[in-house]
Design a protein around this nucleic acid. Sequence first.
DNA 1: GTCTATAGCTAGATAGAC
DNA 2: GTCTATCTAGCTATAGAC
Lengths: 171, 171
Amino acid sequence: MSVFRSKGYDGASLNELAEATGLKKASLYHRFPGGKKEMTDAVLDFMEAWINEKVYMVLSNSEVPPQRRLKDAIHNIGQVYGHGTKVCLYRSLSMDTGMSLFGNKIEKGIGQWLESFSILGEAVGKDVETALKMAKQSFIEVQGSLVLSKAMGNTEPFAQAIQNIETRYSS
Amino acid sequence: MSVFRSKGYDGASLNELAEATGLKKASLYHRFPGGKKEMTDAVLDFMEAWINEKVYMVLSNSEVPPQRRLKDAIHNIGQVYGHGTKVCLYRSLSMDTGMSLFGNKIEKGIGQWLESFSILGEAVGKDVETALKMAKQSFIEVQGSLVLSKAMGNTEPFAQAIQNIETRYSS
DNA sequence: GTCTATAGCTAGATAGAC
DNA sequence: GTCTATCTAGCTATAGAC
């Protein structure tokens, strides 16, 4: 996953993937007969499961008060993005090559993200339309701030974006 | 430029660059002896000049009222991003390979962008700190909405983000 | 200044021993 | 199931004719 995230699909070489996994190339092909495409699919499936567990389940857990849910989800999100130092897998894979190969999975993962935050929005009393708008805005701010943080070598934009999101859901 | 933008640095092949420019590979090397790296530098220089002309000059032109400046700059920005259908060059080049080769130019271009919007913010009466915050927020929303628009195959997030930016500078 | 032809290399992917 | 060795195709880059 770290290789695909930092190099993208075209930039991720099997030599790097082999080194990162500790397996030789031929062993990777034994486990993923479909080659690099199948390896990427596996990473995307893992990411989808991660969103399900660490974002969706957390934000939709009605046994926990909404503010607490958000804090927990944000904690997870901060972790997976290295608090602004890492790149989003979906962003790395959404170049032309990746979009044509994995567009469906990327769209599904982001859709799950939006639904999660929509549920949270409704839990704090927003109507459906407003909740979706807030969800999109949260996604945009996370992604955009990651671009800015990465490019400027400064995690402040990400931290600020996270704080803005918290503020938005507490009003 | 379109090739680097849609394929990234690793994904952009000289065959594609040759086809896109209408020159053969050897001719490209005649004009860019430094190879793909030099071609990318040229594209980044072009992008920087574009920002200077179409964003910085427009937003800092004190002979035009601020609202008009913003409208003009937004018009240009909408054009260069295909109103949400295209990808930002800086995003495409900010994978690991691109960051180590072009990090300085990317940082400079984005810095120019931020300064442009900061000047606009001050022109509508904000203090320096607030103006910079608004500039960052505008950049984040453009970039984030481009990610969302591209991934979902829907330009609505980009259009919405542009509208939010306009609103922010008119209050 | 553009071309054809090709060098040299690394990519993704396989064969087959163990 | 993992390995070494290898294939072929594509890559970046160059040589040299015109």
